[in-house]
């Protein structure tokens, strides 16, 4: 894909953050090591509520790693070690008395490859509410499942086949099912690691539309390889390079008038 062409496309959703948006998460001096490899170097960042924040940068620069810090998914990797603090609503999520399991219910995650469980569509969405005991009875669960699927813009497509396996859906539907599954636990922040990179353009467009709608209720962080996509869906953009947060600003500023030469080079397709 030619990045030069992409950068000439108009910036879609305003491209700037709402000046009144509250700060949702704060990273301070975050370092991540995989064994001896220093993957994230002293990153500090404020992530806003009701805003889509895009992480861009060349492959291997640490976007996924930093994203995974935000809900402590790196805890599941044996060799990963992290220093610094990350706050959610003012509380350090790496604090001793924070349970990563509960944290992940508040900071949901959608992965690059759609990964529905080999269960029915209904059970996929009901998974989170069930394990967290969010509902008292089947009727409440039905309500959550329906509203989650509605917000993921796929209720009409699947309402007649809720009992069929989620793995039988198309790739784009599977990814929206995963988003619905994440929404069902009522998270405050939604992390998405290249959620559309395995999808065709039409499915991608649907996901992007969905992200834009979800912005009203959630703080969303999305890792993307496509600068076009970052420009279309995000209000804030963070450019990572070799584990360093090079530049973080309003999306419109990053794409039209970046401060750093490396950002400039990347968005004009000179490397990456």
């Amino acid at each position: 894909m030619s990045d030069q062409v992409e950068t000439t496309t108009p910036v879609a959703s305003g491209g700037g953050a709402d000046p009144n948006a509250a700060v949702k998460m704060v990273g301070k001096g975050v370092n991540v090591y995989y064994g001896d490899a220093h993957a994230i170097k002293d990153v500090s960042i404020d992530i806003l509520d009701k805003t889509v924040t895009a992480f861009i940068g060349p492959s291997g620069c640490g976007k996924s790693t930093f994203l995974r810090c935000l809900n402590r998914m790196n805890d599941t990797i044996d060799v990963a070690r992290i220093t610094g603090t990350i706050e959610l609503d003012g509380q350090n999520i790496y604090d001793k008395n924070i349970d990563p399991v509960q944290l992940r219910a508040r900071v949901g995650m959608v992965f690059q490859k759609p990964n529905p469980f080999p269960k029915s569509i209904y059970d996929n969405v009901a998974y989170g509410p069930r394990i967290h005991g969010l509902v008292a009875n089947k009727a409440d669960l039905d309500v959550i499942v329906e509203s989650s699927l509605r917000r993921a813009a796929m209720w009409d497509e699947v309402k007649d086949r809720l009992d069929q396996p989620g793995t039988g859906l198309s790739g784009g539907q599977q990814q929206r099912l995963c988003i619905a599954r994440a929404i069902a636990t009522a998270p405050e922040v939604l992390l998405m690691d290249e959620p559309a990179s395995a999808l065709d353009p039409i499915a991608t467009a649907k996901i992007e539309e969905l992200i834009d709608e979800l912005r009203e209720n959630y703080s969303i962080v999305i890792v993307t390889h496509s600068m076009q996509q970052a420009a279309r869906v995000s209000q804030k953009t963070a450019f990572f390079h070799l584990g360093i947060l090079v530049e973080y600003d309003d999306t419109s500023k990053i794409f039209t008038n970046p401060t750093d030469q490396r950002t400039q080079d990347y968005i004009t397709g000179r490397f990456g």
Binding site: M73, T76, L103, F111, I131, R181
Partner: peptide
């Protein structure tokens, strides 16, 4: 697949829950 485990952990499931339910 590891992705199923990640999916479950990402929803806030514990290890035992992940094993039992996924």
């Amino acid at each position: 697949p590891q992705s199923l485990r990640d999916g479950s952990y990402g929803l806030g499931a514990t290890k035992a829950e992940t094993i039992r339910t996924v």
